[in-house]
């Protein structure tokens, strides 16, 4: 847990020092290009790696009533038997975290009348769902907002997102809700891992590292916007230079914290394809969710289906023929009369 924090701090420090001793070009230009390449290539390779293995069996988890008889109401989206149903199921899963929404927690009810004392019930628990959803959406919106640096002119939709995000109209520059909420959500996810003993037991360094990294990115980002007030115009010229493959750097005065922010983002991009973060594309591949539950209606093909070998009926009858005949069971071949 602390190790991964130290690693993140170290990366930040290296970037800071790098920018101070004139290596801005390395951290500001080379690293981002490398990171984007690694991210794209790595992610595509991971997806190809998955796709190369077949899905031998259709194993959707049924989360509700199947489609069977007319008078029994099917749970169309938790147990979908059509492509449309599967599409809705996946949309619910990806956009609303349907499965996490189901989460329950064993809770002890004090003074249950039936039990005359405490009783354990499995109670709906939505905290994890709520903060996970908050985190992912805020992250997405913050990501979207950054497109103002990548595009000229700024698309109307980005401006709209910014307008909504800054609806509170406090502070100057205007406070964006998503940035603040993102920070809170990351802290919740981190606190869960650290303080819930059960989760701490299962957490690995690979679980803390991305959280610390995101925390670093968010804090440096917030710092740049509200405290250091980085020169937006300069940053934009720099980023536009990057996106147009003609990086400019020499006549710009780039902030050290900006380089740290950029380096941490690059680290995230590089780390992404080799870590659990691949759950983002991975969820679309999940055979327990993305297959229709029509397995009795349509045959699913297994490309490596081995040849059928089993104890056949003729072998069976050969073994038991006399006894079967005596018991009056119908036979393919009558036994030889006893000598």
């Amino acid at each position: 847990m602390l190790e991964s924090l130290i690693v993140v701090l170290l990366i930040g420090a290296i970037a800071w020092i790098g920018s101070a001793i004139g290596l801005t070009a390395v951290f500001g230009i080379v690293l981002p290009y490398v990171a984007v390449c690694v991210f794209v290539v790595g992610l595509v390779r991971r997806m190809i790696y998955w796709a190369k293995s077949p899905v031998p069996f259709a194993i959707p988890t049924t989360g509700g009533q199947e489609h069977s008889l007319d008078f029994i109401k099917q749970d169309k989206f938790d147990c979908p038997n059509t492509k449309w149903g599967v599409f809705v199921r996946m949309v619910l899963e990806v956009l609303l975290f349907r499965s996490l929404f189901r989460n329950t927690r064993a809770i002890s009810f004090e003074n249950d009348p039936v039990n005359n004392g405490p009783r354990v019930v499995y109670y709906s628990s939505k905290w994890l769902w709520f903060f996970a959803l908050l985190f992912h959406y805020c992250f997405f919106l913050v990501f979207l907002r950054h497109f103002r640096f990548f595009m000229e002119p700024v698309p109307a939709c980005i401006s709209f997102v910014e307008a909504v995000d800054g609806v509170l109209q406090i502070g100057s520059p205007r406070f964006f809700l998503t940035g603040g909420i993102l920070l809170v959500a990351i802290l919740f996810l981190l606190a869960r891992r650290i303080f819930d003993q059960r989760l701490r037991y299962i957490s690995l360094i690979n679980d803390y590292f991305p959280l610390w990294l995101l925390l670093g990115i968010v804090i440096s980002g917030l710092y740049l916007r509200y405290f250091d007030k980085a020169e937006i115009a300069q940053v934009k010229i720099f980023i536009m230079g990057l996106t147009h493959f003609s990086p400019v750097i020499s006549n710009l005065d780039l902030n050290g914290i900006f380089i740290v922010h950029l380096t941490l983002v690059s680290t995230l991009l590089i780390y992404f394809p080799f870590s659990k973060l691949v759950h983002m594309p991975g969820v679309f591949f999940s055979p327990t969710r993305n297959l229709p539950t029509n397995t009795r209606e349509v045959r699913h093909i297994n490309p490596w289906n081995p040849p059928s070998q089993f104890f056949t009926y003729p072998e069976y009858e050969d073994r038991y023929r006399e006894a079967m005949a005596e018991a009056g069971l119908p036979l393919e071949k009558q036994p030889k009369p006893a000598e």
Binding site: I107, P118, V120, F195, D196
Partner: peptide, 10 residues
């Protein structure tokens, strides 16, 4: 004994 309520299990 998990953090929030030490008895959150049967």
């Amino acid at each position: 004994s998990s953090n929030m309520d030490p008895f959150t299990n049967p």
